[in-house]
């Protein structure tokens, strides 16, 4: 029993870190995500040009030393706009994941530890929300409250709650049914103490993996919403919005559409690879559990 306890609770963090070096997928994802975060931080302080600065003489310029990725239909510097929308994308995506986690994790823990009627009710509610894919939920909320960054973030966050609730509940259930928790109960430890000492540390790695995977989905949803004109309204630079306006100039300047497309794809790829890598390292049984 003590071996099981050690294997499950203690070293999962150390294991994550040690194995992180061995997984190319996690390493690749980590590097990509790290680069995106760096670019976003840099963009807070500096971009080559102002992302909103219009220049009527410099419309649809091809890439050149002064404008590395060229300019758009209003003569705005594409690189600066790409950089500055990295902030917005990350904040919006992370915000959505945060909302999903803040509601989903406690809900999952509650469903696992209480079980019975309440647990059933929580999971049914999760199923219900699950039948509204993130984009559909966002479109509905935008219809009701109008397009804005906040609406998009909240909508995607709400739609992602079930994913967190399910993963948390699953991970918590395996811990709660384990022998060392039974032993802790037998010693008369309070449910709250068990939750804090045994369940949370075990659930946390799963939550981290889920967050990374979810981030790839929210990045995609945020971009899709702004592409559809349902996210952050223009003229603020967004990858989706840039793609949408570039589509009108496909015949004149196809590259204009390629840059934001690449930015979206690379971010999604990064979070996905990170999450996948971490998941494989964390626990192979997790894969069969999906």
């Amino acid at each position: 029993m003590s071996a099981a306890a050690k294997g499950a609770v203690g070293p999962s963090w150390a294991r994550l870190r040690r194995l992180g070096r061995r997984s190319p997928s996690a390493t690749f994802g980590g590097v990509v995500v790290g680069l995106i975060v760096l670019v976003a931080l840099l963009a807070l302080a500096w971009t080559p040009y102002g992302p909103l600065v219009v220049s009527t003489s410099k419309e649809l310029l091809p890439p050149s030393p002064s404008h590395l990725l060229g300019t758009d239909e209003y003569g705005r510097d594409v690189l600066s706009r790409l950089m500055s929308s990295a902030d917005l994308t990350l904040i919006s995506s992370a915000g959505a994941v945060l909302i999903a986690g803040l509601v989903g994790i406690p809900a999952g823990l509650l469903a696992a530890s209480r079980g019975g009627r309440l647990g059933e009710l929580i999971m049914r509610a999760a199923d219900l929300v699950y039948s509204f894919p993130a984009l559909l939920a966002a479109i509905t909320l935008v219809a009701a409250f109008g397009a804005s960054t906040a609406t998009a973030t909240i909508a995607i966050g709400i739609a992602s709650i079930p994913a967190f609730a399910r993963v948390t509940r699953g991970a918590a259930l395996t811990v709660l049914e384990s022998e060392y928790v039974l032993a802790a109960r037998a010693y008369g430890r309070s449910p709250l103490a068990i939750l804090r000492r045994h369940v949370l540390p075990n659930v946390l790695p799963f939550v981290i993996v889920q967050s990374s995977l979810l981030l790839s989905i929210t990045v995609l949803a945020v971009a899709a919403l702004s592409y559809l004109g349902l996210g952050t309204p223009p003229p603020t630079a967004t990858w989706g919005g840039m793609l949408q306006s570039a589509q009108s100039y496909l015949y004149q300047d196809p590259l204009l559409a390629v840059w934001p497309g690449v930015a979206i794809a690379v971010s999604v790829l990064g979070f996905n690879a990170l999450g996948d890598g971490l998941r494989d390292l964390l626990d192979p049984t997790l894969r069969s559990g999906e």
Binding site: L243, A257, G261, A265, V268, L269
Partner: peptide, 18 residues
Amino acid sequence: TQLGIAIPNFVLGILLII
């Protein structure tokens, strides 16, 4: 396939149009 997952369908659509 990993790469395919990362490319959103609307980005792919625009690339295909190009």
